[in-house]
């Protein structure tokens, strides 16, 4: 082995060892526990346990709520990202700054603050009753969980959308206009298709954490509504059944893998990455 190769290996070996030991092996551990029982024998029970009514219900609620949250995030973020991308004065830095800054306040505290805002005797209801409007009753319901998801993950939708929209060459848009397209056609045929990588990236970044959260449902759902994240968390911290917890995690990962494959197909160059 020549000297050049040796020095390269000296540098890269610790890196490969690290990702092998702490990314690849832990994933294998989940699969090992998921496909074995307490005696170490192979079983599919932990996987099929997802079909039990109790687990299946939690999974369905998670899927429905996270899909709704993702759609709301998209509908809120797209117009915003579009408006921001058209503002030439404000640099990229400022936009990122405005929407990244809230993340510096601990996310548990921010979610808890929503509890203060939407409680029965909370701030928002105080305003509503002062204005003579009916009070909001959403705390400890699915609506509150969706609100928490939209709130926490909206920036993850805004940033990739903004990045792809801001990168669109204005001359392409101008060309479409010169060729006689009106604003609607220009949007439909030029701007929207060019922003698809950002849309896919944003959907992934909102859907995956929403689907798997256990904290938001804990704080805003009053721990009555169990999401699949809550079920898995309890298997590990309360019930201490690692095998069942791992099996359910594997099923959960299937959703994520489908999402990852989709995003790889649509965003080959990784150009829509958030930052």
């Amino acid at each position: 082995m020549n000297k050049k190769k040796l020095s390269n290996h000296l540098l890269s070996t610790p890196f490969y060892l690290w990702i092998g030991a702490f990314i690849v092996i832990p994933l294998f551990m989940i699969f090992y526990y998921g496909f074995t029982d307490k005696t170490g024998a192979f079983t599919l029970e932990n996987i099929t346990a997802m079909a039990e009514p109790w687990h299946f219900k939690a999974l369905m609620i998670s899927v429905v709520l996270s899909v709704i949250s993702t759609i709301i995030c998209f509908l809120l973020a797209y117009p915003l990202a579009y408006i921001l991308s058209q503002m030439k004065v404000n640099s990229h830095q400022y936009v990122v700054f405005m929407f990244i800054l809230p993340m510096w306040m601990n996310f548990l505290l921010r979610t808890l603050a929503w509890q203060t805002l939407i409680e029965k005797t909370g701030v928002i209801n105080g305003f509503l009753t002062a204005l003579g409007l009916p009070a909001l009753r959403i705390i400890n319901t699915n609506y509150a969980i969706v609100l928490g998801m939209v709130y926490n993950y909206l920036p993850f939708m805004i940033l990739p959308l903004y990045n792809t929209l801001a990168k669109i060459d204005p001359s392409v848009v101008n060309a479409a206009r010169d060729l006689g397209a009106n604003s609607f056609i220009t949007f439909k045929r030029i701007i929207f298709p060019l922003s698809i990588p950002g849309i896919i990236s944003g959907i992934t970044m909102v859907f995956v954490p929403s689907l798997t959260t256990f904290v938001i449902s804990n704080i805003l759902g009053g721990s009555k509504i169990l999401l699949i994240g809550n079920v898995i968390e309890q298997e590990f911290t309360v019930a201490c059944n690692w095998h069942l917890g791992s099996g359910l995690s594997i099923v959960l990962m299937m959703f994520i893998v489908v999402n990852m494959v989709l995003s790889m197909i649509f965003d080959k160059d990784g150009e829509a990455n958030a930052l």
Binding site: I23, I30, V208, E233, F236, G245
Partner: peptide
Amino acid sequence: LITGITNIPMLNAEIVTGISLMLL
């Protein structure tokens, strides 16, 4: 392959990453 592997903790659910490391 390497990009794929290093991206796993970012793309995977945090709960799964946390659990897998805990098991290890």
